[in-house]
Write a protein that binds this DNA or RNA. Structure first.
Lengths: 167, 167
DNA sequence: CGATTACCTACTAAATTGGTCAACTATAAG
DNA sequence: CTTATAGTTGACCAATTTAGTAGGTAATCG
């Protein structure tokens, strides 16, 4: 398990996707603008996310990416694993020159810690993160009650109806 | 919180230190041999570990390093933080151009995950790891003998928090 | 003294991160 | 059919980090 900025970018992008893909697919350009991640870097990340079946793509005008399944079935660990292609574990696992049992054990202990964290992140879904976000948003609104509540509505024109969704 | 090979090297070296420093100080050359880490890289790591008061040094022949205090008072998170000097958090925390509350929130959620992992690793001491090592050694011996391999789960996932019951 | 070992600085090679660019392909809208 | 949109791929690049080297100084012990 590796925790780097790469994984954070991926999780952030997936959160953005989960937030905005209720109606139409979300283009990487949109995510790039909203989350301030370079478009080309997003392309790299989503190429891997797609290969791991975490997102599905829709081509052509109005296309973009969607979560491949519900946010409740996509877990943070899956996202991080998808973009960290080289999970060589310990370098010791593969090599046969582990001269002493002791070396193996210390490596094993590190693996164990890593696995525990992996298990932790495997239990947190995108939906759970979003729920937490809602809680935090409400808390923030209550904090800044006196000021303008600045809710940001997303207005979409769908056919002949006007869709106003509060985010 | 960053989990990379650097931190793993540091934890491995500290485990080696905890294992062998009961009598005399342990030289980096010894650790280098036993754990197959280059001596110079160990010097870099231990320079930081010493600056963070995790180890104390003894110069001269027969010198080396010792844990600065009992293994029960040194925690994995401290070791990892010591060698990862640049803990810039999210890059968003400092920057003021967080245009929308939304961006801050996704970043905040990542921070929150990271903090939970940090808290998790802050609860695991070197001594606990060593105890686990003993358990595993015994278990391995028992496995080899009677094929009764059962691994005791030390950490439970309860909601989105980690319960460290016993290690 | 001389051997040992920590300690320090500078340097280098490899890998990773983050990003750019260009060409290409599939698709949907007009 | 044409064209714009948008995904896909691959090559390339700069900055940073990781990992390791080389060479020296300082302290300490026998």
């Amino acid at each position: 398990m590796r925790l780097t900025t790469k994984g954070r970018y991926a999780v952030t992008a997936m959160l953005d996707l989960a937030l905005h893909s209720s109606e139409r697919p979300v283009s990487l350009a949109d995510i790039s603008q909203r989350q301030d991640i370079s478009l080309s870097y997003l392309e790299q990340l989503f190429s891997k996310l797609r290969r791991c079946n975490l997102v599905s793509s829709v081509r052509g005008p109005g296309g973009g990416y969607r979560l491949s399944r519900g946010g409740g079935d996509i877990f943070v660990a899956q996202i991080i694993d998808a973009v960290n292609d080289t999970f060589d574990a310990t370098g010791c696992g593969g090599k046969a020159d582990c001269q002493q049992g002791e070396v193996c054990l210390t490596h094993y202990l590190w693996c164990d810690l890593s696995d525990q964290i992996h298990g932790f992140l495997s239990a947190i879904s995108l939906s759970q993160l979003l729920e937490k976000r809602e809680v935090l948003t409400i808390a923030a609104r209550q904090d800044a009650r006196s000021d303008a509540g600045q809710r940001v509505p997303a207005i979409e024109i769908k056919g002949d109806t006007l869709l106003v969704t509060e985010i």
